[in-house]
Design a protein around this nucleic acid. Structure first.
Lengths: 235, 235
DNA sequence: CTGAAAAGCTATCAAGTGATAATAATTGAA
DNA sequence: TTCAATTATTATCACTTGATAGCTTTTCAG
């Protein structure tokens, strides 16, 4: 998992939006398959052949569109960030703006809940809308965070850091602090991590709870538990 | 990661406690190296050559002592469970016995804290005592839980299920419930998961908090946060 | 000291891996 | 229709991986 030089920036044809002709939806199929495969096995253990087969293309297509395994991996990371941005950015930037001015404790509490719910939705019920072609991107993200693979920096900088910082900021306001301190960051981190039960160790979670899956009704229980934790914040 | 038949139960020499001669401490070195390697890369991505080199032995030694890669992997899982048992079993069985008879809310709270602290110690400051030759076993366990590899069942049955069940039982008592319900199990799961910030995504945690490492002083902050959560349980 | 059991090593195999050169098929503007 | 740009396929390479056959060295009871 060394972070060597990027592949030669993919000279000839791989630009995503080659407005030229229609054919290149193979690209999308490859991306989807890669996301699933990388998410399940991690960067090294995933095989390009398996990805190609799942995508219904031949092996060299991967090089053609993405320059190689690593380029494909990075493209997956970017795709994840895009989808995340579409779903979360409005809420996030709104909350961020609100942080600038003073804020009542109860206001912060409400806003914190408003941010946590879609986040939980994203983590617990990952991929429920099939139109964004992200399947189990939680696996991808978390494997990358653990193994510090080629996409660590981009995922850290664009997903985790802003997410934790925002949550920490809101928590600080709930506690009546004007500045975001280390304690608030720790609490934010642990709060977000508590959701990891339903992504990292989802098989365990379902088995322990005797849930057949992570359906909508069960999702509400998770959110309720999260919100209870938020309510308990000021004690 | 298919769960095929076990390797032919390792015919000739690999028994751990061959009281015969002294030489077989190579076995221990291999186990330690394997734990680290499997923990960092997972079952498939880890390579036997790397393990052998890290252990200072030649490749065929792995087959000699463990029958093969899979046998070595399973031996790692058993080792983890052993160390866990040594550290946690007294506390766990004591708490379990206490669950049988009625219990005040405050008593349950105290006992919950008493169980969570060593658990956090195990997760956050993994491998601080070098005499149990487990390095970063959290990586091993969590990769296995995600990927459902060859050791899933044993780790689930002997680590997670009892741990969550005990925690859930104590939480239920804190809340004044005589029986352990699904809600208590969910809370237990999320409580334990909140610790995962310091194992699963430890690189993130350290970066976000600007901690250079997970030292003792910082560990206390995590425990304090955990206990605050326990205190907030009844609201 | 002896010799059999135990432990360790060299060399090699077969399967799988990512990559890519060479070539063919297709697409759609001109 | 033409034909160059684009997309797809075949065949193959160099390398890594887990495994193991067969030999050598070490260990230690007698």
């Amino acid at each position: 998992m060394d972070d060597g030089a990027l592949p030669p920036p993919a000279l000839t044809p791989p630009e995503p939006s080659a407005g030229y002709r229609k054919g290149g939806e193979a690209r999308a199929r490859i991306l989807t398959a890669a996301l699933a495969e990388f998410g399940e096995h991690g960067f090294k253990a995933a095989t390009t052949r398996q990805i190609a087969e799942a995508a219904g293309v031949k092996l060299p297509a991967l090089k053609y569109y993405f320059g190689g395994k690593r380029g494909l991996y990075l493209a997956c990371a970017r795709q994840i960030i895009d989808v995340y941005a579409v779903r979360m950015l409005p809420l996030v930037s709104e909350a961020h703006a609100a942080l600038a001015s003073p804020m009542s404790s109860e206001d912060a509490r409400a806003r914190l809940k408003a941010v946590l719910r879609p986040l939980a939705e994203l983590l617990v019920g990952a991929g429920k809308t099939p139109d964004d072609n992200i399947g189990d991107w939680t696996g991808f993200v978390l494997k990358e965070m653990t193994q510090q693979g080629p996409a660590f920096d981009i995922l850290h900088g664009e997903l985790w850091a802003p997410g934790v910082e925002l949550t920490a900021g809101l928590i600080a306001r709930v506690l009546g602090q004007a500045e975001t301190g280390q304690s608030a960051r720790l609490q934010a981190l642990m709060l977000i991590s508590s959701l990891s039960a339903f992504s990292v160790v989802r098989p365990i979670a379902l088995k322990v709870l005797a849930w057949p899956d992570a359906g909508a009704a069960r999702f509400e229980k998770v959110v309720a538990q999260l919100e209870a934790q938020v309510d308990a914040l000021g004690r």
